[in-house]
Every structure is written in structure tokens, then in C-alpha cells.
């Protein structure tokens, strides 16, 4: 009886060993397929975004996804499929961003995510800074707070799993201030609790505070303090492990910036094809090449991208410009480099 059992266990172990070797080898062959192949075969681009932040990622009344971040993802979809409609947006919370991009469940993460060195090492590859932001505080207008340095001893509402959360702690610790926090995973809860008076202040990236303030019951009862306590470069990210896909998404981001710099817009893109400016003709794939084929894109993908979403400035103005759909936020550091801002892209050559 004992031998029987031993024999059975031994045979199971042998079988398992054989099977596991089999499993591992099939896995390796699976992961050799590039993400571009996977995306093309699937027929759509999956982007992790949000649906609850005016300006950056929200739902229009007809239920369609819109926003600055969403349009960046749409540009990638347009580059691959020729039009921006083959885009699926998966709404995730701030705390889900890391695991989602680490697990490679989505092709691109465009959910106002701050590029930090440790995230770059752990989460995925960060492409090109598309929005320069910084953390600020929103307080009630009648609270008597005028500066971030007045905030010693207050209660602050903040979203969990964000850089904001640790910047907040660092800022108060640096200044020797005492701090009470109320932390939620869901940003609607954060601002709901702030509005009800659970907290004296809410903190986040200033662009986000501007967006939220515009949606509060009485925006004028709230103000955003002038200080900026952190650097928040918002950057689309892709999963680790596929250099070619990383290059592709970067290339699309560069096209958006370069198109604004060269004055190519949604309206004049067709006409620009016959422009006599060499950089414009190169960008639109009329002559030369700037690496399109090497990442697996068509020569004139820039035309499709600009037709679908416009150039960088057009995307910005659509949501946050003077007549923006969501609110108005001066471009400030998000002006082009040759216009006093920080937005810059390598030349398309």
C-alpha cells in the first residue's frame, strides 16, 4: 500500500514537471508577439483613463469619452487604425494605475499620471510630458487662508495612491506643520467630503483643482491658493517590455507637439500636404521618413492623427482654452517652448 502511494506521488511529480515545462515554453512564445500586433489583431486600442474629471477625462452627454488625456490616446488609435474611433477607454481609479500598467492589461495609460523616477522604474515606460502641472490647495474663500504657509493644523482631503498624497505629507513635515488627513480612493468622495466641510482644504494637481472647482455648487465660494508645492509632469505611460511600442507612442506624442509648432491644424492638414515647407511635408509623410516604418506605422499616419484630434494646442484649447468645453486654464508652462513654455518635442527627422 505504501509503495503504491509512493509510486503514485512519484508519477504525479514527473507529470507535473513535464507539464510545467510545457506551460513555460508556450508562455515564452506567446510573449514574443509585439503589442502592435496584438492591438492590430484586436482591432482597437485599450487605454486606461478616467470618466470623472472635466477637461482631462469625462463623459459627454451622449456617453462618449472626451478630454485632454482621452484625445492623447485617441491620437495613438488614429495613428494605428487611421481614425480615432477604434479606442476603448477603461475607467480606473488613481490607485489602480500602477497595477494596471504593470500587468500590461491596457496598451496605454493616459489618466493624468505623474511621471516620477520610481514609477518609471516600477510601473512602465513614460513617454513624453504632455502637461506640466503642480500640486496646490483649494480652500473655502471665507476661510481666511491666503497662502499654503497658513495651513498649519488643518484637515486635508486627498486621493489615495497619488503623488499628491506623499507630497502633502512631505510639505507639512518640511514646514513642521501638524496635519490631519482624510483619504479616499474615489476622487468624488474626496471633493464631496471637502464640500461638506469634513476638511479645511482639498489638495491635488492645480489643473485638477480648477476642474473640480468649476463643478462645485458655488465655485466662487472656493479658491485655489497661489503656491505650488510640487512638480507634476503628467505623462502617458506604456507597459514595460516592448521598446517598439514605447517608441510608437512617443512618436505620436511628438507629432502632436511638432504639428502645433509647424502650424498644422485639423482644418489645414489636407492643404498642408502640398505645403512647400520641408518640415511640414516630412511630418505629413509626403517626403522623407522620420521613423514611421521602423515602429510599424504608415508614412502618413500624422495626417490621420491630426485629422482625428488636431495638434497639441487644439487639444488643449478644446477643453481648457478661452472657449474650452470644460473650463479655462491659461496655458502657462504648457505653451510651446518657443512661446515661453516647456512643451517641446524632438524634431521629426
Amino acid at each position: 500500500m505504501r509503495y503504491k502511494l509512493l509510486a503514485a506521488i512519484a508519477s504525479i511529480m514527473v507529470l507535473v514537471a513535464v507539464l510545467s515545462v510545457g506551460c513555460t515554453t508556450t508562455d515564452d512564445s506567446d510573449s514574443s508577439a509585439t503589442r502592435l500586433d496584438t492591438v492590430t489583431e484586436r482591432g482597437n486600442l485599450i487605454a486606461a483613463g478616467r470618466t470623472d474629471l472635466p477637461g482631462f477625462g469625462f463623459l459627454r452627454e451622449d456617453g462618449s469619452n472626451a478630454g485632454f488625456d482621452i484625445d492623447l490616446a485617441r491620437a495613438v488609435a488614429a495613428a494605428i487604425f487611421g481614425d480615432g474611433s477604434s479606442l476603448e477607454v477603461v475607467p480606473i481609479s488613481a490607485a489602480e494605475r500602477g497595477p494596471t500598467i504593470q500587468g500590461g492589461e491596457v496598451d496605454v495609460l493616459t489618466r493624468n499620471v505623474t511621471w516620477t523616477t520610481s514609477r518609471d522604474a516600477q510601473w512602465g515606460n513614460f513617454t513624453n510630458v504632455m502637461f506640466y502641472d503642480g500640486q496646490g490647495f483649494m480652500v473655502r474663500a471665507n476661510s481666511g487662508f491666503d497662502h499654503a504657509t497658513d495651513l498649519n493644523g488643518i484637515t486635508v482631503c486627498v486621493t489615495s495612491g497619488t503623488t499628491t498624497e506623499s507630497n502633502l505629507a512631505d510639505y507639512f513635515r518640511q514646514n513642521g506643520f501638524s496635519l490631519d488627513t482624510v483619504v479616499f480612493e474615489d476622487s468624488a468622495s474626496v471633493y464631496g467630503a471637502y464640500e461638506e466641510g469634513r476638511c479645511d482644504a482639498a489638495t491635488s494637481d492645480k489643473s485638477q483643482l480648477a476642474a473640480i472647482r468649476s463643478g462645485l455648487q458655488n465655485p466662487n465660494d472656493h479658491k485655489i491658493l497661489p503656491e505650488t508645492i510640487s512638480k507634476e509632469p503628467l505623462t502617458p505611460a506604456v507597459p514595460h517590455g516592448d521598446d517598439s511600442w514605447f517608441d510608437l507612442v512617443k512618436l505620436v506624442m511628438y507629432v502632436l507637439v511638432n504639428a502645433e509648432e509647424l502650424g498644422v491644424t485639423q482644418a489645414n492638414v489636407e492643404a498642408s500636404k502640398s505645403s512647400d515647407s520641408i518640415p511640414v511635408r516630412k511630418l505629413l509623410g509626403v517626403e522623407g521618413s522620420f521613423g514611421q516604418a521602423d515602429v510599424g506605422l504608415s508614412d502618413d499616419f500624422a495626417v490621420d492623427v491630426i485629422k482625428a484630434v488636431g495638434n497639441y494646442g487644439e487639444i488643449y484649447d478644446r477643453y481648457m482654452g478661452p472657449n474650452g468645453e470644460s473650463f479655462t486654464l491659461p496655458r502657462g508652462p504648457n505653451e510651446l517652448w518657443n512661446n515661453g513654455g516647456l512643451i517641446y518635442a524632438p524634431p521629426a527627422k
Partner: peptide
């Protein structure tokens, strides 16, 4: 608790996942 902001083991764990990047 995560839904109403009480920092229990799961909530703290979720935050750690994001801050440490080790899901």
C-alpha cells in the same frame, strides 16, 4: 472601509501598492 476612507489593512495595502509599486 476603503469606500469611506477608514485606513484598514486593505486600504493601507492598496496605497502601498501604489507608493511602492509592488502589487
Amino acid at each position: 472601509a476603503i469606500a469611506i476612507g477608514y485606513p484598514d489593512a486593505f486600504f493601507v495595502g492598496r496605497t502601498m501598492i501604489n507608493q511602492a509599486g509592488r502589487a
